[in-house]
Design a protein around this nucleic acid. Structure first.
Lengths: 238, 238
DNA sequence: AGGGTACAATGACATAAGTCAAAATCTGAT
DNA sequence: ATCAGATTTTGACTTATGTCATTGTACCCT
């Protein structure tokens, strides 16, 4: 039995309610299972897909952590998101039938692949699934709106505070500690996502640490004063 | 007969191929027409919808020009996009059944409203339409990725050059001049979208003007040297 | 266990873009 | 046509963040 090519089974999946099948009935999930593709392991540092790869499947993160990177011709890169358990990868590729960014595992991970052709067919006979999927696409648009707000209108401290609170909330939603977290990405990755340089991120973390909002030891972060941190997300935080 | 409440008819619409029905057969468009809601006029400065409004319809811009603005609690606002003829408004609202940004007409405009409930039903019986819509949602995600790149990794000059070229291309795609354009938005709007202050936008326009890339007279812009302008979009433009 | 490579922290300094202010221009209403 | 308010331009100055350089730390591989 090969871990790299295991059939996905949403029906018995522990994160079913965090993922694509959330809200579907047992029968519907069973139907979805019959159309699921394989399960796939991706080691830390490996690419799940790259710019230009033909688009065949959507991926649901089953375990682990990913980043998606948009590459600019002149070598610059922009991290457009970090994906954890239950989140979908590949939505950007539907438009052109090709992936337009790289997806890279930041720790040993596993994904469930969903053939998009089959998924669309299934959507035709399962209004619920299609509706959920429309919502997932819309949610991604909303998330990106919020990142635009962050990048376009916030100062560095606000950006980092938002980032940390968002990360904590996503952990909480997965029943993981939203107080102690280990960051899966480098300071440079955080900087890229937030439109800052790694030195700035490092300085801000030190500042939050010195001010007693966080305890930072390398990639281990402990949120000591969530309220105070949350206030730093906005201009008017006196 | 009231312009404010005219039945939409995609079948005879001049921008049919720029809009939602692009690529559909005549029969399919006919079916779509039967499910279209009303046509609606929006005067310059008016809101098509506001944050918190319940989501009932998607809107296709039939004529005119809109901006969408995301409001932050502390009063700051971020423009998340400018929409012209054939583009869809309201995609962000599917997720929560409520609009999460304001849509404001920047000139006298008209939109076609599409009841989303009916649209989803139609998608169930018309795979082509559903497929196109998935692509439209994905395209919006890609567009926002590119804005994130712009806001997160580019310098002010590059941002403005990108903005102008993008605008020109969208005009060209609509068979409008991509050389002479009149900007529908203020310098402040441009600045908000690009994460810059209006003074910076003004200075950059003056600079491009002085360098002979553009002719700028208020909101009339003429692109004199498209190639040179296109080069300014990237770091390595010596 | 040790040694090498990647990552992170910190200081000194540079600079792109922001801020504040004044003048110029445009626009729309009467 | 005229005026008032909105928008744009431009200048002088400030500042947040970037850049460069150094040292410190952690992690991975044999």
């Amino acid at each position: 039995m090969n871990l790299h090519d295991l059939k996905s089974v949403c029906g018995s999946c522990t994160i079913r309610e965090l993922c694509l099948p959330a809200g579907l009935s047992d029968e519907e999930v069973h139907l979805l299972d019959q159309h699921m593709d394989h399960r796939q392991v991706v080691s830390k540092g490996d690419y799940l897909y790259r710019v230009g790869d033909p688009f065949r499947s959507l991926f649901a993160v089953s375990s682990g952590f990913f980043k998606t990177v948009l590459l600019h011709e002149d070598g610059r890169g922009q991290i457009t998101g970090f994906q954890m358990m239950g989140e979908l990868l590949g939505l950007e590729a539907i438009h052109s039938d090709h992936h337009v960014c790289d997806a890279i595992a930041l720790e040993d991970s596993a994904v469930c692949a969903i053939s998009f052709d089959q998924f669309e067919q299934l959507g035709q006979i399962m209004a619920n699934l299609q509706h959920r999927f429309n919502k997932d696409l819309s949610r991604e648009i909303v998330r990106e709106h919020n990142v635009m707000m962050l990048l376009g209108s916030m100062r560095s401290e606000e950006r980092l505070a938002n980032f940390l609170i968002d990360l904590a909330d996503r952990h909480a939603h997965r029943h993981q500690s939203s107080v102690e977290m280990t960051l899966r990405m480098t300071r440079e990755d955080i900087g890229s996502y937030l439109g800052l340089k790694l030195e700035t991120v490092s300085r801000l973390l030190s500042r939050f640490h010195d001010e007693g909002l966080l305890e930072v030891r390398g990639r281990r972060v402990k949120i000591l004063d969530r309220n105070a941190l949350a206030l730093r997300r906005t201009e008017t935080h006196n």
